[in-house]
């Protein structure tokens, strides 16, 4: 187990694994996402109450799920950075923060566009929407803090502490709809219970969620490889890789 842990810390090893993994992540992820979206948009039945506007759920829920999961993964990486000083963990945080920012923005945007025809407003300062906005700012803060500090090691530690402080927001997002009165409805998808929709609605939603996770994995690989190259550009293995022309 510890040997695996040490291997995982080797940027060269990770670069090779990522190169082999990426085509699968991209192809399967895109296929699942597109299948979920096409099924959800054109074939799933409409909702008895909201009609067709509910079809926004097939991108709103995947982006909202991923926005929170990506942050949890960043928090795990932050603990690894702080305790084990593993460089690859810091590479992950830096590579993924901009992805999290875009995905969180998409979840807020699709939610606002969905809110207008169903609730009657684009935005309301309820606990769910506000805590999601805080998540957006946390991603922005991580990117800004990382850019503000020049020294690589200090930046890694400062960013890790910020990510950890922000992780308290995640249970707040998740339970906001249960702890307080909100306009946002409780979760349709729960890990432990049956989804509160029929299979012809939740299966495409699940496909889209899985597809989003795989595409996120692909994005993380591409961006981590970029960051690894930037850090290791003077090393022998990078020279061999770059001059051989296969990457």
């Amino acid at each position: 187990m510890w040997q695996f842990f040490h291997k995982l810390g080797s940027p060269k090893w990770f670069y090779g694994i990522a190169t082999r993994l990426m085509p699968w992540l991209l192809v399967i992820g895109t296929a699942l996402l597109m299948a979920g979206i096409v099924w959800g948009l054109a074939f799933a039945p409409k909702d008895y109450l909201q009609g067709d506007s509910y079809r926004i759920i097939f991108i709103h829920v995947p982006t909202a799920f991923l926005a929170q999961s990506a942050y949890i993964m960043m928090a795990v990486a932050a603990v690894v950075t702080l305790v084990w000083r593993m460089k690859l963990a810091d590479v992950f945080v830096k590579a993924v923060a901009p992805v999290g920012l875009v995905i969180t923005f998409l979840s807020l945007f699709t939610g606002a566009v969905w809110g207008k025809p169903t609730w009657g407003t684009w935005w309301i300062w309820d606990a769910r929407l506000t805590s999601m906005l805080i998540l957006l700012f946390l991603y922005g803060g991580v990117i800004a803090l990382d850019r503000a500090i020049n020294d690589e090691k200090s930046a890694a530690r400062a960013v890790a502490v910020l990510v950890l402080v922000g992780v308290v927001n995640i249970p707040i997002i998740k339970y906001s709809v249960e702890w307080w009165n909100t306009l946002h409805q409780p979760a349709t998808f729960k890990l432990t219970e049956k989804p509160s929709m029929p299979a012809e609605m939740w299966v495409p939603l699940l496909l889209a969620v899985l597809g989003m996770y795989l595409i996120f994995g692909w994005l993380a690989c591409v961006r981590m490889q970029t960051e690894i190259l930037a850090r290791e550009q003077k090393t022998r293995w990078v020279k061999d890789l770059v001059m051989a022309g296969r990457h």
């Binding site: 979206i37 948009l41 067709d52 926004i56 982006t63 998409l106 945007f109 699709t110 969905w114």
Partner: peptide, 9 residues
Amino acid sequence: YVWSSYGAF
């Protein structure tokens, strides 16, 4: 509403 959110996505 539906197409603008899918478009942005």
